[in-house]
Design a protein around this nucleic acid. Structure first.
Lengths: 342, 342
DNA sequence: GAAATCATTACAATCGATTGTGATAATATT
DNA sequence: AATATTATCACAATCGATTGTAATGATTTC
């Protein structure tokens, strides 16, 4: 009997009124007397009533919930974006379900399917490394569910909104910074070229070289999944191959930290022998010695903006969805790993 | 019209069969011919059908979903536990909704209420620092929703399951290790004494002192929310007050890192002047210089065990719920911040 | 060939909350 | 006082899927 959840019908029966009145009372509808409301609310508390959101959402065909999909929550950038989203959501009474794709397309597809089936009102996503086409994302549009990308977006999905930073510019700034510190042979650790962010960071890298009349060398660009082990091993390979370089621009901090560790083990002086700069401003970057220069993406702001964009489109209904791209500013944080001059 | 989601009734109408048959076909029920199933599945795909889980769950009064509540996902320990939970959940076809309380009781209450309203099948939780009583958690039991604690549990909630480590033992080991490295005046950074884990870590600290015939001094135990700033500032206060100490055992890594930073700034040699050990094995702990000694809690295993416990109780129904406490082993990682001897 | 058996499918109730409309009672208007 | 107007509440349909039972048709048995 423990399992019997009290419903509005239970309350109605005890109070000898109709369940519709109970429903209206609980929703503070003006068609119900204050006296009746009080009675209903008292009884509801007495019976430990908890609204069945499944039923409520089914009836209203909305869930008051948005889905957030990120590659992995253990990345500080992503968890900070989520914190930004949640702060706004909490204020406006929306619920947030957090999902991680683990960089896997298969999981991402399963997640999207599940979100649709659960009738979320909108989705905010940063796609997985494996994701190359957006078929599963188009499903969202087919179901009239607004979608907002942040950071890693999918250009194939037409008419979408996104919150980004200017990756090319940020990369350009990063590489320019290394050059200003005297680097001329700069390695670039990049990610899958299927993702726009990595393409753009590579473009920024090239542009900075070009503008400084430095040669672009194919062998200095290294693609990998950018895990710490990748940074470590690729650095090892570079050293083993006796490739001449004096700077590393890594498309994320994690790989940069891997590189740093290997360089230190090999007795390289940082930044004197090799200057290093990462991307994303992970907490570890402040902590490592020397502290890692990086790009701060104002993750919390990205979250808030993405949420606002999404809510705006949810409110609009599917009448006239607005498709905009918000570009937030990023900040170069020059720290010990690249600052050669006082 | 874009907003019209296809239902089993749409499929039924087009195929001129009943919706119940469609439902059974989609659920691969043996009462439906293979031929009919094929037709239904084809049509479902054609129309882009996605099962409405709200309706399905409402009817079956279960959601195939479990809720996970943690203080904050940006802590590596928690995101790793979640990864462990999700790995198992994915295999067994359960969905996981991740929620963060931000250490706030109010948020935690709102989350629990929402999970109940969404009729999750079970909940795994590590409670917020603010949480002192378990009224909101008892609501879960009242609704027949199984609950499993991990790490931070609530002793007030009787008859519950939990996955823990032996905090007292781990703390004892940590402090013993400091003593073995020659420390005799050891500071302890502790958290809110309302949480068992911090009480137990303090007990372990005391026990280690006692067994080594070292005096326990009240002023060397400092309670705080254990953020990085707390570690930094409390260390500053200790130094300013010229309190004599040669070791720090911090109840988490974050505060230990704050302490380490301040000590380094003040030119203290670590571990020679002051040896430091933290708790939880955050990624930053490996990266900081010197690397921070710490306790590894095998977070991933905790997640898997908590999930197994929960599923077991879900399967059981509310007949005869099993209440057990699983204690996993933790590992002392002695690193540069405390190792004085070769 | 009629009766019996079994496999398929249709019918209808159900999960719990919401909401348009109709009924009743209370108040206001003339 | 009789009618008009509200305020309050009850009735019943609905959201979409599931499921026990009844109905239909096909196949088998004697």
């Amino acid at each position: 009997m423990k399992n019997h959840r009290t419903t509005i019908h239970d309350i109605a029966r005890e109070l000898k009124i109709d369940s519709s009145t109970v429903s209206r009372a609980l929703n503070n509808n003006s068609k119900v007397t204050a006296k009746t409301k009080a009675k209903v609310i008292a009884k509801a508390k007495e019976l430990g009533y908890q609204r069945n959101l499944l039923a409520s959402n089914l009836r209203q065909s909305k869930s008051n919930t948005i889905g957030v999909v990120v590659p992995r929550i253990s990345r500080y950038f992503f968890s900070t974006v989520i914190a930004g989203i949640e702060e706004s959501a909490f204020k406006t009474g929306f619920n947030v379900v957090i999902c991680q794709s683990q960089e896997s397309l298969e999981k991402e597809q399963a997640i999207i399917k599940n979100l649709i089936s659960n009738r979320v009102d909108g989705v905010i996503i940063s796609i997985a490394m494996e994701t190359q086409n957006g078929e599963h994302l188009k499903q969202l549009k087919n179901n009239g569910i607004p979608l907002v990308f942040f950071d890693r977006f999918c250009p194939e999905v037409q008419e979408s909104s996104q919150v980004l930073i200017d990756d090319q510019q940020a990369a350009y700034d990063a590489v320019n910074h290394l050059i200003s510190q005297g680097c001329s042979k700069i390695v670039h650790f990049s990610g899958p070229q299927t993702l726009e962010i990595y393409k753009n960071r590579l473009r920024g890298y090239k542009l900075a070289l070009l503008e400084n009349n430095l040669p672009f060398k194919e062998e200095l660009v290294i693609n990998s999944p950018l895990m710490e082990a990748n940074g470590y091993e690729e650095t090892q390979k570079l050293l083993d191959a006796k490739i001449d370089f004096d700077g590393i621009f890594s498309a994320n901090d994690i790989a940069a930290i891997g590189a740093l560790k290997h360089l230190k083990e090999k007795g390289k002086r940082i930044p004197e022998d090799i200057a290093v700069i990462g991307f994303s401003n992970e907490p570890s970057s402040k902590v490592i010695e020397p502290p890692l220069s990086t790009i701060d993406q104002s993750a919390f702001e990205i979250g808030k903006n993405a949420y606002d964009l999404l809510i705006d489109n949810i409110k609009r209904g599917e009448k006239e969805v607005l498709h905009k791209t918000i570009t937030l500013k990023s900040t170069l944080l020059a720290r010990g790993s690249s600052l050669r001059k006082k």
